[in-house]
Nucleic acid binder design. Structure first.
Lengths: 154, 154
DNA sequence: AGCATATTGACAATCATTATCAATTAATAT
DNA sequence: ATATTAATTGATAATGATTGTCAATATGCT
């Protein structure tokens, strides 16, 4: 956790940027909600709870900054907005996402079986992969149970 | 090709909706640009070239309709907008996308090695997959060549 | 402490998309 | 063919998310 703050400080120093209260507060808010896949508005709302003086623009600006550093990643999960998650330090590739088409819940799944596919892509297309994103759509445990119950009743 | 028009007509009849000149024109425009991953605005601009009387709202409405039918699919390719592609009729799963982080080009790649992963997901999480989307980021053939040339010079 | 300038918040502006609504038009019955 | 009815359309306003502007403020350095 503390790691990320250090990372931010180093990046700012390196670039000649400044460490501000707002940037710390926003990073903190994001770190305290790891795993929730918040979008910008939701982060803004959370920040405002404790620090109503912080403006929207600053939140957006800081999110971009954190993304640039690689502390957070943004992704599209189906509803129009970009949702963010905290980078996991030991992960080689980003984990996959399981998105429920019934309730919208987002689960994570670790796995790295894409190496062979990436080799095949290079062979066939001379496309050199540096990263990948995988999303699975379907029914989460809960919704699956509900669905099956309903089908029995009919 | 003609297939899609038939599909549209059948859907409209089934739902009691109407077959309009605008809907045909918009579908036509999309079909004539298969493979380009256009976004809504780009589709709108192309439609207007030949049919300036068609309004934006109608284009958006028709895109939703076509997506609903399954004639086109929308996806996020990194720039903020949703980009669409024509469904391929014989494909079981949607193909994968190779997105160049240098020039933004989008290539397609057919492959279906995710079956085992989906089984594993069900085992571990009881999440029942119905579809998946995979994006690979990296350097396309052209940009890779340029990049290597540059590195040699340095 | 003082200085140069990065940063901020308020607000306007933009961009993509959606809602509203009166006028138009396609599909059906006559 | 014509009338009827409701789906559809285009223009435009409205929305929602994000970005730009700019004067006021605060940070990091000397």
């Amino acid at each position: 956790m503390q790691n990320y703050t250090t990372q931010l400080k180093e990046y700012l120093k390196e670039k000649g940027y400044r460490l501000t209260e707002q940037r710390l507060v926003i990073l903190d808010t994001i770190l305290n909600n790891t795993g929730k896949h918040l979008n910008s508005q939701e982060i803004y709302d959370l920040v405002k709870e404790k620090h109503p003086e912080v403006g929207v623009a600053t939140v957006y600006r800081t999110i971009s900054l954190l993304e640039e550093i690689g502390i957070i990643y943004g992704g599209d999960f189906g509803d129009g907005s970009v949702r963010y998650e905290v980078a996991k330090e030991h992960e080689q590739h980003r984990h996959h996402h399981l998105i429920c088409i019934e309730c919208g819940s987002i689960e994570e799944f670790e796995d790295d079986l894409l190496g062979p596919v990436e080799n095949e892509i290079y062979k066939q297309k001379q496309f050199k992969t540096t990263d990948h994103r995988v999303k699975f759509y379907g029914y989460c445990k809960n919704c699956l149970a509900k669905k099956e119950k309903k089908e029995v009743q009919e």
